[in-house]
């Protein structure tokens, strides 16, 4: 299938991108890696009049450390492939690298970007829950300047984020998770399939106990979610299967998973419990 016609601009700077988006109004759309957007256009499920291609804005790519906070600052247009192979990400945010390796397939990961995935906000996408678990922050640039949105406020609804139509996601800030164990447990029907449910787990262990755990859930609602009850139950728990299983029983609390071709809500809730147990045990190194 073939996309409907649109105009195309490829700004060189963030300011120019923001200006173009602002002028374009609601018929303008950002083109990041295009790995979701271009298929959507081909299927004629969307009809933007203007695509603003962020592909040639150098400052949107790459990973650096913020000297002030020590956080990682990841340019929104950094590709999945580059995230996976970035030494800073691997050292300080291994969860993000591990989860990104499960996104789609190698060719898609060469084009697809972290910022694009987060802005698309597909509840079946793997990375939103990861950013939620990492307590990441999104930096948006708009006509009124820049603002920082915590991950927990960024994902508003199904395919909707806190970004305004004329805002561009420019940076993702990820606090270092040094010393945290991590695991992303993805459950999909085929290798290249979307997650039926995914669980992103970060665990900090102290003396055989779980001092702190953070759990992000993929595809358990219209937005990514944190399994707060399980996190609370894990705080201070022994890092042993029985204790983790008992805490994981609450993983689906407060979730509202959808029905689709692969799963009913009941099955998703069940999977969330099983996969949370597995992810936490793996992250705690007691698998």
């Amino acid at each position: 299938m073939i996309p409907a016609a649109f105009d195309y601009v490829r700004p060189d700077t963030i300011d120019e991108a923001v200006r173009t988006l602002h002028d374009g109004g609601e018929d303008a759309k950002v083109l990041a890696g295009g790995q979701s957007l271009i298929p959507i256009l081909r299927l004629r499920l969307a009809f933007p009049e203007l695509l603003v291609d962020l592909g040639r804005i150098p400052e949107l790519r790459g990973v650096r450390e913020d000297p002030a906070t020590g956080s990682l600052v990841i340019g929104a247009m950094t590709t999945h492939h580059d995230v996976i192979h970035d030494p800073l990400v691997r050292r300080h945010a291994g969860l993000l690298a591990a989860a990104t390796e499960t996104v789609a397939d190698p060719a898609v990961r060469h084009r697809g970007t972290l910022g694009g995935s987060l802005s698309h906000a597909d509840p079946a996408g793997d990375l939103p829950a990861v950013l939620l678990a990492l307590d990441g922050e999104m930096v948006a640039a708009g006509p009124r300047g820049r603002r920082t949105v915590p991950a927990r406020e960024f994902f508003v609804d199904y395919l909707r984020t806190a970004l305004a139509d004329d805002e561009v996601l420019v940076e993702i800030r990820v606090p270092r998770a040094d010393g945290w164990g991590f695991h992303y447990e993805k459950f999909s029907r085929v290798a290249q399939g979307w997650a039926i449910v995914g669980v992103a787990a970060l665990v900090r262990r102290v003396d055989g106990r779980i001092a702190e755990a953070r759990i992000g859930l993929t595809n358990m609602g219209s937005t990514p979610l944190r399994a707060r009850t399980t996190e609370a139950a894990l705080a201070g728990a022994e890092a042993v299967p029985a204790a983790v299983a008992s805490a994981a029983d609450a993983a689906a609390e407060g979730t509202r998973p959808a029905t689709d071709l692969s799963a009913t809500p009941e099955y998703r809730a069940h999977l969330a419990r099983v996969l949370t147990r597995r992810a936490v045990l793996a992250a705690a190194g007691t698998e």
């Binding site: 299938m1 195309y8 490829r10 083109l31 295009g34 790995q35 271009i38 298929p39 081909r42 299927l43 291609d53 592909g55 492939h81 789609a104 397939d105 190698p106 060719a107 898609v108 060469h110 084009r111 290249q192």
Partner: peptide, 29 residues
């Protein structure tokens, strides 16, 4: 295909494999 799933159209762009059905020609500028 029209969803980027099948990979039949895979080519190399600037050294990386990409699915050429999910890339605009002008992006290869």
């Amino acid at each position: 295909c029209d969803t980027g799933n099948c990979g039949a159209c895979t080519v190399e762009l600037d050294g990386d494999s990409v699915k050429s059905c999910s890339v605009l020609a002008v992006q290869a500028d």
